[in-house]
Simulated assay, not measured.
Amino acid sequence: MSQVIRYRRLMGYVGVILLVLLGMMPIMAQERGTISGKVTDARTGESLPGANIILVGTFMGTSSGPDGSYSFEAPAGSYTLRCSFIGYATKDVEITVIAGEVTTVDFELSEAAAEFGDVIVVLGSRAERTAVETPVPVDVISEVAVRESPQYELNQVLRDLVPSYNASHQTIADGTDHINPASLRGLGPDQVLVLINGKRRHPSALVHVNGTFGRGTVGVDLNAIPKSAIERIEVLRDGAAAQYGSDAIAGVINIVLKESTGKINVNAMTGANNLLFKKDISLSPEIQEIRTAHGLSPDVRFDDTDGETYSLDINYGFKIGSTGFFNITGEYLDRGRTNRSTTWTG
Rank of each mutant, 00 (worst) to 15 (best):
Ala205Lys: 14
Asn180Gly: 09
Ala241Asn: 12
Ile172Trp: 03
Asp306Ser: 03
His208Phe: 15
Ala248Thr: 07
Glu153Ala: 07
Arg129Cys: 03
Ile86Arg: 01
Glu101His: 09
Ser78Lys: 11
Phe325Ser: 10
Leu195Gln: 02
Gly33Pro: 05
Ile5Gln: 13
Thr323Gln: 03
Phe59Asp: 13
Gln3Tyr: 10
Ala42Lys: 00
Arg201Glu: 15
Ala240Leu: 10
Asp177Val: 15
Gly317Ser: 06
Thr58Ile: 08
Glu73Tyr: 06
Gly346Arg: 04
Thr292Gln: 15
Thr305Phe: 05
Asn327Asp: 15
Arg82Val: 01
Phe116Trp: 08
Leu276Trp: 06
Leu109Gly: 01
His294Met: 14
Gly23Tyr: 03
Ile98Met: 11
Tyr7Ser: 14
Gly336Thr: 15
Phe107Trp: 09
Thr329His: 13
Val157Ser: 01
Gly45Arg: 00
Ile5Lys: 11
Thr104Ser: 13
Phe59Val: 12
Val20Gly: 06
Thr103Glu: 10
Thr40Lys: 00
Glu259Leu: 05
Asp304Asn: 15
Ala99Pro: 09
Val146Glu: 00
Asp177Asn: 13
Pro26Val: 09
Val220Asp: 01
Gly61Ser: 13
Asn52Gly: 04
Gly57Lys: 02
Arg215Asp: 13
Ala268Ser: 09
Asn339Phe: 06
Gly50Val: 08
Val105Glu: 00
Trp344Arg: 07
Asp247Ile: 03
Val20Thr: 08
Ile86Phe: 01
Val39Met: 00
Ala248Cys: 08
Gln30Pro: 01
Gly198Phe: 09
Met24Glu: 08
Arg237Glu: 15
Tyr332Trp: 13
Ala127Gln: 10
Phe59Gln: 11
Ile5Glu: 13
Gly65His: 02
Ile95Pro: 02
